[in-house]
């Protein structure tokens, strides 16, 4: 563990990612304390530029404080990103582990199901799923988890395929351990590093997907997210750049930070590159 942290923190890029991500998380957590009046309160004239009295980054098309919107938007983006990734990792690990550990017809069946999800244009599937379930926070999370689990399942299956032939797994079988015990105590801990790396990258892409849904008006109408801020302000794009550019930058920086962290984890958890 100490070795892992040393490698992870010894490079500037993951460190930068970690700092940026910490700032975003802090902003999201502190939003209700900093801005008790909520993101939908109108505070002044619409489209005031950044630096106007009392408005650090200006106001939007309805005269709401952009700074408050960005802080509250971070809550939704992170919530969606993290919960949908957890859901996808849960489904993916379970199906990938079963397919890789048992192999044979079960593997064939599960992999065909996985491919079914992979060959359908995922964003179209997502729009259909969300529209079908009524746009809401939970339908967004469920929809994103349902379109992203196949990549986790593939990674986990590959790891399990190679690990199940290793002698320590055979040894566990000769010791009389049951399959579930072997999967969870012997194989899974060894398959964790790639799962963590894929997961950290997926949080970023889930945030992007949520933004795209909200931009199209398929997000939860009662919540403000970065994507819905851009979608709501697109008519003012040419007269008030800050209304679309700032939420866009927030998305970009957060996703970039998550990718930096994922990269750092990849290096630090890969035993061949640890030195």
């Amino acid at each position: 563990m100490r070795n892992f942290l040393r490698v992870f923190l010894s490079r500037p890029i993951p460190l930068v990612g970690l700092v940026i991500f910490a700032v975003v998380v802090a902003l999201a957590l502190l939003a209700p304390l900093l801005f008790a009046r909520g993101p939908f309160t109108i505070v002044g004239m619409p489209l005031l530029p950044p630096g106007a009295p009392g408005l650090l980054v200006g106001s939007d098309v309805l005269g709401r404080d952009m700074a408050v919107g960005l802080a509250y938007g971070a809550r939704i983006s992170l919530l969606v990103g993290i919960t949908s990734t957890l859901g996808a990792v849960g489904i993916g690990v379970l199906l990938g582990a079963v397919a890789g550990y048992y192999g044979g017809w079960l593997d064939d069946l599960l992999m065909r199901v996985t491919e079914f999800f992979q060959i359908i244009p995922s964003f179209v599937l997502l729009m259909v799923l969300v529209a079908f379930m009524q746009p809401s926070l939970s339908s967004t999370v469920i929809g994103i988890a349902l379109i992203t689990w196949p990549q986790v399942a593939r990674v986990v299956r590959g790891e399990f395929l190679s690990l199940r032939g290793r002698e320590f797994v055979q040894a566990a079988r000769t010791l009389g351990m049951g399959d579930a015990r072997i999967i969870f105590t012997q194989v899974l801990p060894n398959a964790l590093p790639p799962i963590i790396v894929v997961g950290s990258m997926m949080v970023g892409s889930a945030i992007l997907t949520e933004s795209a849904l909200s931009f199209l008006g398929l997000g939860d109408p009662n919540l403000l997210s970065w994507g819905s801020m851009i979608g709501g302000s697109r008519s003012a794009m040419w007269v008030a750049w800050w209304t679309t550019v700032l939420p866009g930058l927030a998305i970009m920086i957060t996703v970039l930070a998550l990718n930096f962290i994922g990269d750092g984890l990849n290096d630090a958890l890969n035993p061949r590159r640890r030195r």
Binding site: E167, F168, Q170, T174, L175, G176, N190
Partner: peptide
């Protein structure tokens, strides 16, 4: 439990993520 095996490869036959104690008592615990 009455037929046990010692494997060839001293590197891949022990789970790298478990301590020696955990490895040795895994059988009786099962």
């Amino acid at each position: 439990r009455r037929i046990q095996m010692v494997f060839q490869d001293p590197f891949s036959s022990l789970n790298p993520r478990q301590t020696v104690g955990e490895i040795v008592i895994a059988g009786p615990r099962a």
